[in-house]
Amino acid sequence: MPNFAVNLSMLFTELPLIERFDAAAQAGFKQVEIQFPYELTPDEIQAALQRNKQTLVLINLPAGDWAGGERGIACHPDRIDEFKKGVNLALKYARSLGVQKINCLSGIKPDDVSSQKAEETFARNLKHAANTLEAHDIQLMAEAINTQDVPGFFLNTSKQLIDLKESFCIENLYFQYDVYHMQIMEGNLIATLNNNLHNVGHIQIADVPGRHEPGTGEINFPNLFKAIDAMGYSGTISLEYVPAADTLSGLAQVKPIIGGQ
């Protein structure tokens, strides 16, 4: 069975972020991820990780004005300098905290930018980030997001990312495969994962519809986990869902599905 982590930006939101490490540890999780850790200092996070003997497996690059509706800036031609500063900030956190994977969100394509220009900008930024992180043995992830929840999100299928990686020769770039988003956009989860496993660096899960706990929707997670096991995937699978009620009652339903964790 794969290793499981919890996303502290999505679960335990009943608590301040700094207290979610303790709550995750009490629930039995030694691996955590955070979308945007930047409201805390690296020292604050390090103390929480050490206290709970946890590993922070993944963070995101800064993604613009999240509260204002932005979902990344990597495809925005007029914000390349801001993107590079974000890479440096994320690298500072990752090096301090031992994070080995950093995720990049493409963002929503601006209306006044052509698809070709957005792709060129996105590829240029990915290559810069990938090369910068590779020098520190950190992998760059990129995540495709469904366009029902986030209309206009530029990177939205597995094929788009693989084609971009190959066309622009970005070696240190891997797919952050979010089962929820990919079920909506393309389905055929097991075959897609199996065909692209060498490019998959991280997996996240939530059920469809609703983005709630595994077992609340249409995805056959026991079958999916069995297939992922058979593929030989040795990375982390992160619980990145919106609890239907409170976090702990949701985890009580999830743990039998993920093997008790």
Results as ranks from 00 to 15, higher is better:
P2E: 02
N3E: 09
N3P: 00
F4L: 14
F4T: 12
A5H: 09
V6T: 15
V6R: 13
V6C: 15
L8H: 09
L11S: 05
L11G: 05
E14W: 03
L15R: 11
P16W: 04
L17Y: 07
E19Y: 01
A23I: 00
A23H: 02
A27M: 10
G28M: 07
F29S: 07
F29W: 07
K30E: 09
Q31W: 09
E33N: 05
E33H: 05
I34Q: 02
Q35A: 11
Q35D: 06
P37N: 10
Y38P: 06
Y38C: 07
P42A: 02
E44A: 14
E44G: 02
Q46Y: 06
A48H: 03
N52K: 10
K53D: 14
L56C: 09
L58A: 12
L61M: 15
L61C: 12
P62I: 07
P62C: 09
D65E: 02
A67H: 10
A67R: 07
E70H: 12
R71S: 11
R71V: 04
G72I: 12
C75K: 09
R79P: 12
R79G: 08
I80C: 11
G86D: 09
G86Q: 04
G86R: 00
G86N: 05
L97K: 07
L97Q: 06
V99K: 04
V99H: 06
N103G: 02
L105Y: 01
I108K: 13
D111H: 08
D111T: 12
D112G: 02
D112V: 03
V113G: 08
S114M: 03
S115E: 06
S115L: 02
T121G: 00
T121R: 01
A123Y: 10
N125W: 08
N125L: 08
K127F: 00
H128K: 04
H128G: 00
T132E: 15
A135Y: 00
D137V: 01
Q139L: 06
Q139T: 12
M141C: 10
A142G: 06
A144Q: 15
Q148L: 10
F153V: 13
F154V: 12
N156H: 15
N156D: 15
N156Q: 06
T157H: 15
T157E: 13
S158M: 14
Q160P: 09
I162L: 14
I162V: 15
I162F: 11
E166I: 02
Y174C: 05
M182D: 03
Q183F: 00
Q183D: 05
I184M: 08
M185Q: 15
L189F: 02
L189Y: 04
I190C: 05
A191C: 03
L193Y: 00
N194W: 01
N194A: 15
N194F: 00
N196P: 03
L197P: 00
N199E: 03
V200F: 10
V208L: 12
V208N: 15
G210M: 14
G210F: 12
G210P: 14
E213R: 11
G215E: 06
F221W: 12
P222S: 11
L224V: 03
I228D: 10
M231A: 13
G232N: 03
G235K: 06
G235T: 13
T236V: 15
I237D: 00
I237Q: 05
A245E: 12
G250M: 01
G250D: 02
Q253T: 08
V254T: 11
K255Y: 12
P256Q: 07
G260S: 08
Q261M: 13
